[in-house]
């Protein structure tokens, strides 16, 4: 059976679909958070060198990965909106930005809390930390630029350019630990294998999935409000059951 993917690129068809998907993503996320925290704090053993402090990894690494991944998705949607002039793509980019900013903030915050007992400092101007801070500023810049222009379509185009140019920062964050001699440790999980205990890996990947599902649920909920706001003068909005 062929699926017509373009069908859901219109706000009229995407709005009800997003509404149906949100509970599934939200409930799955809550379950995975509970499972991930249980494995991370009950099943996984203490680290040989870092003791209990390493357990910050189960929120720090997933939030860092999600903050970078969301930026690429946001830039992708922004580029689609810019190239094809599709309304929904730009709306999705606007909906993703606040969640991405929050994940970047959580990544920096939990990193500082991990850095203090391990390095003796909350913050160092290390390449990985600094590039992640720039990512947070890029998200905030995207949100501020979009909010500063009254016409939504012009705001979409201006913010899209910022998102596309800023996406160059994502590979810099990822490869910073390879390109420069950083205090931040390199990747523990590589293509060649890992020295991580299996329970630690399970907890980290479960929390990663939970954070991802949470981000999707929140972005979908936010884009529904953006669709309502931008399409409020259209007939299909006035005919919605929740509006009547």
């Amino acid at each position: 059976m062929a699926i017509n993917w373009f069908k859901y690129s219109a706000p009229t068809t995407f709005y009800p679909l997003a509404g149906r998907l949100i509970p599934w993503f939200a409930i799955s996320s809550a379950i995975l958070f509970a499972v991930g925290l249980y494995i991370g704090f009950v099943v996984a053993p203490a680290d040989a060198t870092q003791g209990e402090f390493y357990r910050i990894i189960f929120i720090h690494v997933p939030s860092s990965i999600i903050s970078m991944f969301l930026y690429l998705i946001m830039a992708g949607y922004a580029a689609l909106g810019l190239i094809f002039n599709t309304r929904l793509s730009s709306m999705m980019a606007s909906a993703i930005a606040p969640t991405g900013a929050l994940f970047a903030f959580i990544s920096l915050w939990t990193g500082a809390l991990w850095g203090k007992p391990m390095w003796g400092a909350w913050w160092v101007w290390d390449a990985r930390l600094t590039s992640e801070l720039i990512l947070l500023f890029l998200y905030l810049g995207f949100i501020a630029l979009h909010a500063s222009i009254d016409d939504p379509r012009r705001a979409d185009r201006a913010a899209a350019l910022l998102a596309i140019i800023g996406s160059v920062n994502v590979p810099i964050i990822y490869f910073s630990v390879k390109w420069w001699n950083t205090l931040h440790q390199g990747s523990t999980i590589k293509y060649s294998g890992t020295s991580m205990h299996i329970a630690m890996q399970q907890a980290m990947f479960t929390m990663l999935a939970a954070c991802w599902l949470y981000a999707v649920a929140v972005a979908l909920a936010r884009v529904r409000s953006i669709i309502l706001e931008r399409e409020k003068n259209t007939k299909w909005i006035t005919e919605l059951a929740e509006v009547k």
Binding site: I59, L102, F105, W109, T110
Partner: peptide, 18 residues
């Protein structure tokens, strides 16, 4: 108190943000 430090400092903050 490493576990209290981790829970209050990072997990509680993250879940409050969510």
């Amino acid at each position: 108190n490493p576990l209290t430090y981790i829970w209050v400092g990072s997990y509680a903050v993250a879940f409050i943000i969510f």
